[in-house]
Design a protein around this nucleic acid. Structure first.
Length: 570
RNA sequence: CGGGAUAUAGCGCAGUCUGGUAGCGCACACGCCUGGGGGGCGUGUGGUCGCAGGUUCAAAUCCUGCUAUCCCGACCA
C-alpha cells in the first residue's frame, strides 16, 4: 500500500474524550472513529488488525473441528420468549419492531437462534456432536459504554455452540475448545490466564474466562501462589476463618453516633477498629420468601460479593438493593444505623462475621450504634454463608497457598450449558436406544474487537503501538528520504515495494512528500514492526537501514540482501 | 439510573466571570527555503460558538429548557 493512496488518518494530538491508552492510540493511529456512544467505524488500519485477529480465531476454530456458519443479527422475539430471556435479559437487550409491529431483538448472543437451527436440522445421535461457530457483529445496549472498543455497544464476537448426546461428550469438546483458546491467545502473543468463572446470565454449570492481564482491566481475578488455581473474584470462595471466635470481653452498650453514617466515620470518630465493625446491607427477598427484604452482613473492611449473595436461598436474583424508603418502612431506621440487634428480617452473615466478638453495628435506631456485640450472648448466631469478595492474602480455596489479585480484560468465555436451552426449546434427538433425549450444549465466546484493544493495552510505548507481528496492520514499512528529489532513492524504494508485493508482504510505502520525522512518527504510531529506510547517504555505502520497532535497533544491510534478511523476520 | 464535567474550525484549546464585528496552536491549500526524527518564512481556506426559546439596541458570553459526549458511582448503610 502506498501512503498517498491510503487513509492513514493519524493524529498528533489525543482527542480529549479518550481515557485509556488503547483507546487513545486507536484514535491517534487512525484505527477507529466514533460514530456515537459505543459505536465505532473501523478505519483501514484498524480493520487490518481486526481481521488478523479474526483470521487466527477462524483458523484455530476450524482446526479444533468447529464449522463456520453465519446467523442473522436481527432475531424474532418469539425465540427469546421460549427461553424466557425476553424477560430475564433486561435493558441490555435492544428490542425493535418491524413495519408490522412484530417484536425483534438485535442479537447480543445467539443461543436461541442456533438451538432453533439445530433442533430442526438434527434428529439423530449419529449427527452429534456438532460444533458451529460464527464471527459476527453483536449488539448489547451497555449501561455505560466506555474505553472505545473495549466496552462498546456494537462489537465483533466469535461465538461457537456445541451440541451433544450427553455431558461426557460435552466435557470432551469443552476441553478441546479450552485448548483451542489457549492456542489462539498464544498465537496472538497475549499475556493471558484462563480462570474459573461464574456463568452469569448465560446459565449452565462449568465455565472458564480467559483474561488478558492489564491494569486497565475491568475484572478482578485472583491467583494462588501455591497452585494453578485462578478464578474471577466473583467466583472465588472465601474460606471460613480458621480461628475460633474470641470470648466476649466487653459489655453490650448503646452509643449515640449522630455523625457516623459510614464505616469510615464510625472508625474515625469512635476509635473502633475497622475489623470490629460490620456492614448491614438490605436486599430484596425472592418472590417465594415470607418477607420482602433480607439483611446481609459483612465485616466493615470487606465487600459484599453480589454473585454469591444472589445465589443464596431467599435472596432475589438478580440482586436488588432495598431503597431507603423500603428500609425505613421495614426497620424504622435509616441506612447508616442498621445492625443485627432487634432486626425483624431474615439475616445472613458472612463467615468472617460469625467469628467476630465485641463488635460494633447499627442499633436499628437512627443515630445509635451498639458496641460490644457478641453472638450467642446478645443474640443467636444467624445463618452463616460465604458472602464476601476474597482479599489479597486470603488462603486459596484450593487449599494450597494464598491469593493475590490482578486486573484482567475478559477476552474469552467458555461454558458448559448443559440442557438449559435445549430443554426450554425442546431440542431433542433419538438415542441409539430409539428414545428421545434433550441435547446437551456448550457455548464458547471470544471478543474479537475487544482483543484488539486488549492487545494494545499490553503492547505499546510512548511512540505508539507495538503489536506482535501476528497483529500489526503492516508487516513492513518503506521510508524513503528525499523521495521526490532523488531518482536513486525513488528507484530503489519502488523496487523494494514491488518486491514486497510479489512476496505477499503487507507493506506500507510512505510515498508522501513528508519530512522524515513525520514518516518515522507515523510508522511508529501504527506499529510497523520493520521499516526499511532508504537515503542517498546509505546508498553511497551500498546499504540501506532496517529498523526494528520493538527493540529500536537499526541495522545496515547490503542493498541486495535486504529481502533475504527480512525473510527470516517478516 | 444518581452525581460531576464538558460542548467554540478536522484535532487540542482560549474567549464566557465583566454582553459590543470569533481567536491561538496543530492540521489543510498555495509559494519559497529546508531535507535522516512531527522544520522555517509568507499568503490563504475553513466556524449558523451543541439545539430551541427568552432577556437586551446588541448574546459564544446572561436566563430557561432540551440534546449529546466524557468521568465517577450504581453494596461499602
Amino acid at each position: 500500500m502506498r501512503s498517498t493512496q491510503y487513509l492513514l488518518s493519524t493524529m498528533k494530538e489525543t482527542p480529549s474524550d479518550a481515557e485509556i491508552v488503547s483507546h487513545q492510540l486507536m484514535l491517534r493511529a487512525g484505527m477507529i472513529r466514533k460514530l456515537a456512544s459505543g459505536l465505532y467505524t473501523w478505519l483501514p488500519s484498524g480493520l487490518r488488525v481486526l481481521q488478523k485477529v479474526e483470521r487466527v480465531v477462524r483458523e484455530e476454530m476450524n482446526r479444533a473441528g468447529s464449522i463456520e456458519i453465519s446467523m442473522p443479527v436481527v432475531q424474532p422475539a418469539d425465540l427469546w420468549h421460549e427461553t424466557g430471556r425476553w424477560d430475564k435479559f433486561g435493558p441490555e437487550l435492544l428490542r425493535i419492531q418491524d413495519r408490522h409491529e412484530r417484536d425483534f431483538v438485535l442479537g447480543p448472543t445467539h443461543e436461541e437462534v442456533v438451538t432453533e437451527l439445530v433442533r430442526k436440522e438434527i434428529s439423530s445421535y449419529k449427527q452429534l456432536p456438532l460444533n458451529l461457530f460464527q464471527i459476527q457483529t453483536k449488539f448489547r445496549d451497555e449501561v455505560r459504554p466506555r474505553f472505545g472498543v473495549m466496552r462498546s455497544r456494537e462489537f465483533l464476537m466469535k461465538d461457537a455452540y456445541s451440541f451433544h448426546i450427553d455431558d461426557e461428550c460435552l466435557e470432551k469438546t469443552y476441553q478441546v475448545m479450552f485448548d483451542a483458546y489457549c492456542r489462539i491467545f498464544d498465537r496472538l502473543g497475549l499475556e493471558y490466564r484462563p480462570v474459573i468463572a461464574d456463568t452469569g446470565s448465560i446459565g449452565g454449570s462449568t465455565s472458564h474466562e480467559f483474561h488478558v492481564l492489564a491494569e486497565s482491566g475491568e475484572d478482578a481475578i485472583v491467583f494462588s501462589d501455591g497452585s494453578d488455581y485462578a478464578a474471577n473474584i466473583e467466583k472465588a470462595e472465601a474460606l471460613a476463618p480458621q480461628q475460633e471466635r474470641a470470648a466476649a470481653a466487653q459489655t453490650l452498650e448503646l452509643v449515640d453516633t449522630p455523625n457516623a453514617k459510614t464505616i469510615a466515620e464510625l472508625v474515625e470518630q469512635h476509635g473502633l477498629a475497622i475489623d470490629k465493625t460490620v456492614k448491614t446491607l438490605i436486599v430484596k427477598a425472592d418472590d417465594e420468601a415470607q418477607q420482602r427484604l433480607v439483611a446481609l452482613m459483612v465485616r466493615g473492611d470487606h465487600e459484599l460479593n453480589e454473585i454469591k449473595a444472589e445465589k443464596l436461598d431467599g435472596v432475589a436474583s438478580p440482586l436488588e438493593f432495598a431503597s431507603e424508603e423500603e428500609i425505613r418502612e421495614a426497620i424504622g431506621a435509616a441506612p447508616g444505623s442498621l445492625g443485627p440487634i432487634n432486626l425483624d428480617l431474615p439475616l445472613i452473615i458472612d463467615r468472617s462475621v460469625a467469628v467476630m466478638s465485641d463488635f460494633g453495628a447499627g442499633a436499628n435506631i437512627d443515630d445509635k450504634h451498639y458496641f460490644g456485640i457478641n453472638w450467642d450472648r446478645d443474640l443467636a448466631l444467624p445463618t452463616v454463608a460465604d458472602l464476601r469478595n476474597v482479599v489479597e492474602g486470603d488462603p486459596s480455596p484450593c487449599g494450597k497457598g494464598h491469593l493475590s489479585i490482578k486486573r484482567g480484560i475478559e477476552v474469552g468465555h467458555i461454558f458448559q450449558l448443559g440442557e438449559v436451552y435445549a430443554q426450554s426449546m425442546n431440542a431433542k434427538v433419538l438415542t441409539d436406544q430409539g428414545k428421545t433425549k434433550v441435547m446437551t450444549m456448550g457455548c464458547y465466546g471470544i471478543g474479537v474487537s475487544r482483543i484488539v484493544a486488549a492487545a494494545i493495552e499490553q503492547n505499546h510505548d510512548e511512540y505508539g503501538l507495538k503489536l506482535p507481528k501476528a497483529l500489526s496492520p503492516f508487516a513492513l514499512g518503506i521510508i524513503p528520504m528525499n523521495l521526490h528529489k532523488s531518482h536513486r532513492v525513488a528507484q530503489l524504494a519502488d523496487k523494494y515495494y514491488q518486491q514486497a508485493l510479489e512476496q505477499n508482504i503487507d507493506v506500507l510505502f510512505d510515498d508522501r512528500k513528508e519530512r522524515p520525522g513525520v514518516m518515522f512518527a507515523d510508522m511508529e504510531l501504527i506499529g510497523v514492526p520493520y521499516v526499511i529506510i532508504i537515503g542517498d547517504r546509505s546508498i553511497d555505502k551500498g546499504v540501506v537501514e532496517v529498523k526494528h520497532r520493538a527493540s529500536g535497533e537499526k541495522h545496515e544491510i547490503a542493498i541486495d540482501a535486504v529481502f533475504e534478511h527480512l525473510a527470516q523476520l517478516v
